[in-house]
Design a protein around this nucleic acid. Sequence first.
DNA 1: TTACTATATGCAATAATTGCATATCTATTT
DNA 2: AAATAGATATGCAATTATTGCATATAGTAA
Lengths: 91, 91
Amino acid sequence: MNKKQLVAKLSGSLNLSKADAERTFDTITNTILDALKGDDSVKIAGFGTYKVAKRKARIGRNPRTGEQIQIAASQKVKFLPAKALKEIFNK
Amino acid sequence: MNKKQLVAKLSGSLNLSKADAERTFDTITNTILDALKGDDSVKIAGFGTYKVAKRKARIGRNPRTGEQIQIAASQKVKFLPAKALKEIFNK
DNA sequence: TTACTATATGCAATAATTGCATATCTATTT
DNA sequence: AAATAGATATGCAATTATTGCATATAGTAA
């Protein structure tokens, strides 16, 4: 399912036009991203937690050439699914 | 930021009551979960992809006792952040 | 609809991360 | 306020992320 299909579903269940459903959805993802940018994690009970994980710089390797390369520190968004999700999928 | 605070923010930016904002939010997460339950992944361009990862059975360890234990196969929800997110957080 | 852009896939070596059980403590929801 | 959910901590092995780059596919924007 892609965003277009998701928005179509939401349009139905939220009783909104597709344009409004998309705006609503975008507002939510943007709000989450803004919080993460501000270094805050976003905890949603029963769903999961979004947080920014910092990764240190390290030495890697280009597997194609075997050559060692320096990999810069970076950050990525992680999602930790809530316990409820495990139960849903493991029964 | 927890769900309550997120809903409060959304209530403002979506111009909805807190109750409606929460219902809207829950509808979205439930729609995503339903898709995942149906073994479909949910791809949201510019945000990320939710998918169900299957994990094989394997041998683990009870860290308290050190004792080896057999761990059953399981499934978990994974979130793969989109490229756009990496750019946001690594510049 | 066309043109553009994002993402998936494959390769392999290595580094980083996960996840296990479980009790306790804290946060959050009802 | 009571009840539920999540964080924490632990050691160690299995798993996965990461890198570059090319190609293929899918998705999005104009």
